[in-house]
Amino acid sequence: MKAIVMETFGGPEVLRLAEAANPVPADDEVLVEVRFAGVNFMDVGTRTDRGGNGTLPCVPGVEGMGVVRRLEADVTGLEAGRRVAWYLNYGSYAELIALPASALIPVPEEIEDEVAAALPMQGLTAHHLATASYPVEPGDVCVVHAAAGGVGLLLTQIAKLRGGRVIGVVSTEAKAQLARRAGADDVIVGSARPLSGRVRELTNGRGADVVFDGVGAATFQESLASLRPHGTLVSFGQAGGSVPPISLESLPDSVLVTYSMVMHHVPDRAALLAHTGELFDWVASGKLKVSIGEIHPLAAAEAAHRAIEGRGTTGKVLLRVRQA
């Protein structure tokens, strides 16, 4: 099979298309022919060995969709030809992948391949943020950083579905238009003035009930300052740098701070199917729209990584692995 095989850690240039051995499924696994792979900031961490414990050679990519080609002896409830999606399973930048049957998400007939590939990671993340990390209630003021990004666009829509008022934060006017189309009530463009001051202007001095911040160090302090007393800062990523250690005494206005990790939202298969089922239902009914910003061929994984690291993308970035 063809796959993106990393022989070394480093910049996007290490993502090279190569021939690789076909995966051999274990007894509880399924062989899947990959159609699309999702591109995530987690993949950048894999490529650069951010955690310092990566192994080589490796095939990056933790998310995708495809078609079941073979089932092993202990697998029930699936059949060859079934479209499935997955998240948090490494090796997705490849034509074939062996996956635990328990990790597979059946894709409803009415959901297109591209949408099925784009939704699991960012959809579950947005669902977690707005329903568990901070369950948005009617009237809550929610600040969403990077509101035109893949998570931001979905999070804005889910917060609105739950009755929240969304203040989106974006870097350009073009991205502001996307955030408004997703339902943002107000959009703050650029960083010429402190975020906290603009949020307080929009809330008559009160501040936000919750700030959803996937940026990290670059925005952390202004996110804190944007909250009302007893407000909540939900941090879910550090694309703008790791937040340095803080002392509890330094936190203003008795605010709450949490770091949200999507795997805690899906501790078992029942939760995985329940949450993705709700997301698919919202998409099928038109309540939730999945924005796909760019689709690159598998061989252009390097370009896809440069695009997401350059912060110029909106919506989801995908790799097309095989045609349907």
Rank of each mutant, 00 (worst) to 15 (best):
M6H: 03
E7D: 15
E7Q: 15
P12R: 03
L15I: 02
L17Y: 05
A18C: 11
A21P: 10
D28V: 08
V32N: 04
V32P: 04
V34F: 02
F36N: 07
V39P: 08
N40G: 14
N40V: 09
F41Y: 15
T48N: 14
R50T: 14
G52C: 09
L56P: 12
P57L: 05
G64N: 06
M65V: 15
E72Y: 05
E72F: 05
A73D: 12
T76Y: 07
G77H: 08
A80Q: 11
G81C: 08
R82A: 14
V84G: 04
V84F: 00
A85W: 03
A85F: 02
Y87C: 12
E95T: 09
L96D: 02
A98T: 06
P100F: 01
A103K: 11
L104W: 05
E109L: 09
E110M: 09
I111N: 04
D113H: 10
V115F: 00
V115G: 05
P120E: 00
G123E: 02
A130T: 13
A132L: 13
S133K: 05
S133V: 01
Y134C: 08
V136L: 00
E137K: 13
G139H: 06
G139D: 08
V143M: 04
V144R: 02
A146N: 09
A148Y: 02
L155P: 00
G164C: 07
V170C: 09
A174V: 13
R180A: 12
I188T: 09
V199I: 15
R200H: 14
R206M: 10
G207S: 08
V211H: 00
G214S: 11
G214D: 01
A218Y: 04
F220H: 05
Q221M: 11
S223A: 12
S223D: 06
L224W: 02
L227I: 05
F236Y: 15
Q238I: 11
G240V: 05
P244S: 08
P244W: 00
P252L: 08
P252Y: 02
D253K: 12
L256D: 15
Y259S: 13
H265R: 12
V266R: 02
V266A: 04
P267M: 04
H275M: 03
T276G: 08
E278P: 07
L279M: 07
F280A: 03
V283F: 02
S285D: 14
K287M: 10
L288G: 07
S291E: 12
E294Y: 04
L298H: 02
A301R: 01
A303V: 03
A304W: 02
H305Y: 07
E309N: 11
G312M: 02
T314L: 03
T314K: 01
L318V: 04
L319Q: 06
